[in-house]
Amino acid sequence: MKKRTMFPRWLRLWHWLNAVLFAVLIVTGFSLHFAGSGSVGVGFRISVLVHNVLGVGLVVAFVGYLVAMVITGHWRQYLPRRTILGDSVKQVRFYVFGILRGEHHPFVAVPERRFNPVQQLAYVFAVFVLIPAQIVTGLLLLFPDLAPEQVLGLGGVWPMALGHSIVAYASCAFLFVHLYLALTVGEPHTGVASMLLGDRVPPPPPPATTPKAARAERA
């Protein structure tokens, strides 16, 4: 039988490209925001250049991701399930208590639905709110002539900078939590190795595609 992979090659490529872009943009971004404060980061001039180039790189990668998402139908991963609220409560309960007692994950990842409900909410927010907000504010900082002349009677650029900083903080927090969960709480087939090598996932028998059935299968 044909085996499927949790993370197709294009997705893995985008993920690691994004990871590198995020890391360098965060370092250079902090170097710019805290420029001249002793030993923080790399020099201003290098940071400006690298941040601008990789920022545009992030935009290109993100547009590519959107296109690939539509072509492959991957966008359905972001469609919230009908029972998202109740399921999220279960998932949060797992993160807070169940995980401490060594319980199994309440929602098993399958290629058609890799995200657990909390992941789904978090990634919808990250992909459709955080990254676009960062791209828009970043481009307006890169081309300040396009920014509104004035906002609330003050210069039009500083609200962009404010927004860019706040989204950057949120992205950092997201990245920390993402790393923690991926490295220490990852299910089989969703860990770092799978994201790197694209582990083959045996296709589950047809009835086991619902979380409930998947749980029964594992038990």
Binding site: L32, H33, F34, F44, L154, G155, V157, W158
Partner: peptide, 9 residues
């Protein structure tokens, strides 16, 4: 604040 946003300053 009067004038502009200056990165780093």
């Amino acid at each position: 604040i009067d004038d502009a946003y200056v990165i780093g300053a």
